[in-house]
Each structure stands twice: as C-alpha cells, then as structure tokens.
Nucleic acid binder design. Structure first.
Lengths: 346, 346
DNA sequence: ATGAAAGCGCTAACAA
DNA sequence: TTGTTAGCGCTTTCAT
C-alpha cells in the first residue's frame, strides 16, 4: 500500500530523477510537471520521509528529553519549541524521563538509535554519556534550564541566582528580616543557584540567614507542603517566605490553607512561575516568572543554526572548521517579577 | 561516522544475516556471539532504526496530535501514554496544533509522511480527511476525549454528561436553585455533553434553567473570567456556579478574586479537573476530576492491540479478516469528584 | 547456524 | 532537463 516514486515514474513515463527533482523543487518541464501532479493525485502518492532520511542521513527529527512533561514550565517550553521546529520541517520526539537519571540516559540512547538530528535536553542527571554520544556523531545538543560543567554544548539558562536575590530583596525592602526559603534539592543546578541568591540577598544587608529558615523541598507539590509546615513549626517569628519553584509553591500554598495561615497578614509569600496560578489565588501571589517562550526560541535557534551550519559532517575529525562559529554558546535570560498582594509592608 | 552492520560483519568475518540474527535475538553460536559483542563494543555500533523502519515498513513510532500541550489535562495523558508506548519500543512524535483545525490537519499529514505506525488524536476539528488517510493505509487511530460521528476508529471518552449532571445535582442537594454554568464552545463535543448534563440535572428536578444562567466560555482562562463576570452581572440571585473545564475554572476564580466575591459565602462553586489547583485554593475547591491515567492506558492498550494484531497489512482489501476483533471500540470512563469547601449548604 | 543477494523508497552523481 | 545507476543500513528469503 502507498505509491512510491517508482510508481509515479512508471505512470508518467519519466525517470526517477525527474520525479525526485520535482519533489525537491527542482526544474521540471511544465508539461511533465502536470503529468507528475496528476499521477501523484491519482495514486495518492506521499513522500516517504523515512526512506529520504536513510539516504540523506538526516531524519529531520529532533529529540527532546525532559524531566516532567506534566510540568507547566517545561510544557510551555516544549510547546513553543515544537512549534518552531515543525515550522522548519523538523519533527520532535519527546521523552519524559520522570526526573530519573537512568530513564534519562535510556531516552538519549533511544533517540540516538532513531537517528534524531539533534537533541534538546533539560537534564535530570549529570551523566554526560548520552550527550557525548551525540556530540561525537556531530549532532548538536542544546541544554535548557541546567548547566553541566564539563560538557561542551550550547546552553540556555535563566539568571536563577539573580531572580532569587531580587525576590528576597523585595521582602527586605518591605521590612521583613525573618525570611524563610523553601529551597530545592541541592543536586539540582537551579535549586543551588536560587538558594545562593537567597544567601546573597542577606549578605547584601550584612546579614546571615539562620539555618532554620532554610527548608529543603524536593521540587514537588508534596515536598513544598512538607517544607512549609516544617518552616512554620521551627520559625515562630518568621514573617515571610520565598518559595523557589512552582510545584513547591502550589504545595506550600495548600499547606498554608490547611494550617489556616492568612497571607499576607500572618505571612508574606513570594512564589515562583505560572502567572495564571498566581492570579487565581486570593490574595494574588507575587511571583518570579521565567521567560519560557524566549527560552524555547533561543534553544530552537541555537539548534537550527548548528543544523544548518554543519551539513551532517560525516567525519569525526578533531580539527574544527570555522573556528569562531563552532564554539558552544551559553545564553542567560533575565527572569521577571509579577507583583501580587501577598507581601505585607511592615 | 557510525559503524554499520556491514562493519561488524567484516570485523568478525561473519555474514550480514548472522549479525542481524544476533541483533534480533536469534540463535548464534556462542563463539560468534562473543566476537560480535566485541566488535560492537569496539566499533561503537548502534542499530539504525531508520534503516530498519524502511525495510520493515514499521517505524515503531506513534504520532500524537493534541490541541494544547500546554494544558495540564492533555499533558497528563500524553506523559502516561508516551511512557507506556516507549516501554513497548515505540517512540512518540507529538504535534501541538494549538486548537487550530488547519494545523491539526497539517500535523496529521506531517506525521503520515513520517510513516508513524499509528495515531492518537485529541481532535480539535471535525475533519476526517487526516484520519481517513491513516485508516486507508491500515494504520490504527485512537481518538481521545472527543468522539467523531462518522469515523470508524477506537475512541476513549469520559462520561461528560454524567459528570456534569452529578455536579449540578450536588448543588441542588445543597439547596441551590439559581445555579449557573460556564459552558464551553458548542462546537466541542465535551462542552456539548457537559451542558447537556447540566440541563438534565434541572430536568431531573422538574425544572428548566433560565437562559441567563448559561454563559458561554471558550475553554480558556480569559474566557472563563469573562463568562464569570457576565454571569455575576446578569444574575444577582445566583447562588452557585458549575464551571465546565479547567482553564475556565482558573479564569473564573481569578475573576471572583477581582470582584471580591467570597466563596462559598456569596457564591458556591464547583470546578473541573486538576486536584492540585483545587487544593491550593482557599477555600478548597470542589471539582469534577477526569481519570487521565486511565484514559492514557486505555488509548495505549487499544493502539498496541491493533498494532500487534494487524501486522502492517499491506493490502487495502475491503474484506475484514477476524470479524469480531476488528470492530472499533469505544471506551467510556467514569469521572470522579473531589469535595472541597466551596459549596455552601443553604 | 550461517552466507549471499535482493530490495525497502529515496537521493545524488554522472551521462545523455 | 531528464534518465540510469548505485547505494543509504537494514531484514529476509533461499541456499548451504
């Protein structure tokens, strides 16, 4: 089932090359063009991209590995990326690794076997093995959200440290001093940076935060709830909290609900990400926002750029061609802040 | 770059068929097995699934077309589906068509050209053209969330009408009579069903809802907000509202915030989907929930079932083989209800 | 158990 | 401009 170019050739009495030429926008005599188009119509011919991919060694497919699809921040990035890539003729294969390092590596292997032309990765683990495989094959890799020290590829980040610092500074500016933080797991890049920004804000005031004010969440809703409870129990004098990712923000707000703590009267709160959620809360939550669209555009641009520049270089020769252009780039984007009514001015 | 089976054959002195046999779990003399494994190791050989797909006419890839990836309900289904499929060796190509019929059809064409083995579709439009293309080629299609009258393929739905009816009945049971609804666009299957359930609940009480109590949203956050405002303006006596999808629930709650309406004192509310959101609100929101995991499992199961049953039937012969098994199935799943504190007992 | 050879549907020289 | 031909990397008869 499914007509092939050969069928079209036979039907029109033309050669394979002519059909191929037509299909790829080459010059074909008007008369033949019409014949070909008729044949295509009648035989319901549709190009087989798989065969094309085998021949050209380019599948026009990009792999995306993501910790959780079921996470609005990542999902937003993916949507936009997929859109851009598809507009450039690229399909995307998405693998959700459920924040599991092993599954992440399996996904990379899986995608490599399917010969995707490039990889967009929001890393869960620190394993470079999967990435190196791509790099060695001359396939571009773009990291999103998290940096990996030793790996040589493009990278799109936001200024996590600055974002956290600014958020905490706002709390200071509102007169707060006993400011808690719900931090993330310390093996995650963004979590480290955000905690570091929190500390930096204290340092800027010549202060050092008490250790009890720092609660560890695990970037999940449940973890955020747990951390908030812990914070409330250990810090009777705490007047404000900064929550360092979206899921934990949801969890923390749930917990405050359960505890019957009123915001901002009894506790001021600044959360993270997802404007829609923030606006639906009462009172509206002040949050740090990340530019997901811009992140997606940057990542897609970096990837497409390399894809067009290096025409599937077959040889893995160490010598780099166009020196400047080939160097990995790191783009750092600014975060935003959306003011709600969850911070009380003391 | 990248070793091929031919390289392994040369290296080991064996024939291509033997390597292929080894790779596909066939029987190979112990001695040769070791040789092959060594060669694979040294040459960094990795199977080329593209070539395999061309030969076998099965890409082991499933296409998914979805209205909005950036929508928690769909995203949850996708995550689970992708997981199951990948565990069965299938990759998934996801296309977000942004609730646009034209883009939906483009996506279907796009995926067909890439020769995906099957399609999971959460339809936006009513165009059957894209689907027919798959069906004609003997490729299974599973519809999720929305039925299409004239199309002959498997389908996984929830009991939308029943869910809405039950929700409204609960409001009746709490003593409400002036119950509004934020309905969805009437060209969307689920929206029609849910509105119908609302009407049915009234009928069950021997009543008919006033038309002013029915506001049209468009299944978006902004639309939900708009509809809620409209409802509040037109119905001064309204004591309760049922909101018929998640995005509109978020929007409606935002609007109630802005209007300073307190829930449930001034207005009782039942929303839709997303337990996490519902629990983070104050007071907790009562909601109808959909079994996204189960939907995903059903869809994957139906698809994999057909994929295994019909071994890429080449011929498009009209006669159906195993009569019973081939008939399209429609699965209708039950919705759930999570009780919050957003309904006042009058 | 293994090898030889044909071919999946396409592209890309090279000729004509 | 068009036709011929040789693969891309794999699976799959059919022999051996």
């Amino acid at each position: 089932m499914g007509a092939t170019m050969k069928d079209i050739a036979k039907r029109t009495g033309l050669g394979l090359a002519t059909i191929s030429s037509y299909l790829n926008g080459g010059n074909v005599r008007e008369k033949n063009r019409i014949k070909i188009e008729e044949a295509i119509e009648e035989l319901h011919f549709e190009v087989n991209e798989v065969a094309r991919g085998l021949k050209t060694n380019r599948t026009k497919t990009i792999g995306i590995v993501i910790p959780e699809l079921n996470n609005i921040f990542f999902a937003e990035i993916i949507t936009e990326t997929e859109d851009i890539l598809r507009n450039h003729g690229y399909a995307t294969m998405i693998c959700d690794c459920r924040s599991d390092e092993k599954r992440e590596e399996e996904a990379e292997e899986f995608l490599f076997h399917r010969r995707v032309d490039g990889l967009i990765l929001m890393p869960t683990g620190n394993g470079e093995k999967g990435i190196q495989r791509f790099l060695r094959a001359g396939k571009p890799v773009v990291l999103i959200d998290r940096k990996m020290e030793r790996t040589d590829c493009d990278c799109v980040l936001v200024d996590n440290e600055g974002a956290a610092e600014e958020a905490v500074e706002r709390l200071f500016a509102a007169g707060h001093r006993k400011i808690g933080i719900i931090a993330g797991p310390d093996n995650i890049y963004t979590a480290k940076e955000r905690l570091s920004g929190y500390r930096k804000a204290f340092r800027g005031k010549g202060l050092t935060p008490e250790e009890e004010l720092i609660a560890r969440g695990d970037y999940t809703i449940a973890g955020g709830a747990r951390a908030m409870r812990e914070l409330m129990e250990k810090n009777k004098e705490m007047t404000a909290v900064f929550i360092s990712n979206y899921e934990m923000t949801v969890g923390a707000m749930m917990e405050l609900n359960d505890l019957g703590v009123s915001v901002p009267e009894e506790l001021s709160v600044i959360g993270f990400d997802n404007e829609d959620f923030a606006k639906a809360l009462r009172p509206r939550l002040s949050i740090v926002t990340q530019p997901s669209g811009e992140i997606a555009r940057c990542a897609a641009e970096l990837l497409l750029g390399r894809l067009e520049r290096e025409p599937a270089r077959e040889t893995g020769t160490a010598e780099s061609g166009n020196s400047e252009e080939e160097r990995p780039e790191t783009v750092i984007l600014k975060t935003g802040f959306v003011e709600g009514r969850s911070v009380k001015y003391l």
